[in-house]
């Protein structure tokens, strides 16, 4: 009944104009959105493990199990502060590149990477001075596996930053408009940071 009323040949025009215009634009960039999805998945791995940790914590007669050697708070505390502040440093890099300030971005990124490496070194130092090993008891296992898994993520984050630094040597690789690498590394870094805050609260404070 409607076919005579409307000429289908005309109906398509509306979009084909748009389409023509769109053809000349860049392929829109969904990588950031994809990264957010990926981080949701990553977050769920951590959440699952945190859930397991809380389950042990609330069902075992005493937690940490009797005889667990004490955990030093000073070093991890300092480490935590370093990691948290590195997030702010990282944010400066992002601000810089949005002002097209590549040198500034590089500087801030380099500082962040350095802080990440200090954090990792602190972790390794802590590991080597702990009085319990992976198999000592459930708390010890959970401690190593959780911090280790997080440490792995910090390492990846540092590598990502270094990759951005490496690429930014080329002029115009990153600019006001094109800086996915910087943003991605930043988002990932914030994620690693947030995970650490929860982890620190669970393992050291709770």
């Amino acid at each position: 009944m409607q076919s005579p009323t409307i000429d289908p040949a005309k109906t398509e025009l509306n979009y084909h104009h748009k389409a023509e215009a769109a053809h000349h634009e860049e392929h829109p960039d969904f990588r950031m959105f994809g990264l957010v999805m990926f981080l949701i998945a990553e977050g769920m791995i951590f959440l699952g493990m945190f859930g397991a940790y809380l389950a042990y914590r609330s069902t075992l007669p005493s937690w940490p199990p009797e005889g667990t050697p004490e955990l030093e708070l000073l070093l991890p505390g300092v480490n935590t502060i370093i990691l948290i502040s590195s997030s702010f440093v990282m944010h400066n890099a992002d601000t810089a590149i949005k002002k097209n300030d590549v040198t500034g971005m590089r500087t801030w990124m380099a500082i962040t990477a350095a802080m990440g490496i200090i954090f990792l070194s602190g972790q390794i130092y802590e590991y080597s001075h702990l009085e319990f090993g992976l198999k000592t008891n459930l708390f010890a296992s959970a401690f190593y596996v959780l911090t280790g898994f997080h440490g792995l993520h910090v390492t990846v984050g540092v590598l990502a930053i270094l990759a951005v630094l490496w690429r930014s040597r080329r002029a115009n690789h990153y600019s006001q408009e094109h800086h996915f690498g910087v943003e991605a590394a930043e988002l990932y870094w914030h994620f690693v940071d947030v995970v650490w805050i929860v982890l620190f609260g669970l393992l050291y404070l709770l």
Partner: peptide
Amino acid sequence: TLVSTPVLAGALILLSF
């Protein structure tokens, strides 16, 4: 898939330890 599969990964990591 996005929210549930990673939890299996978590379980399997612990299991492999």
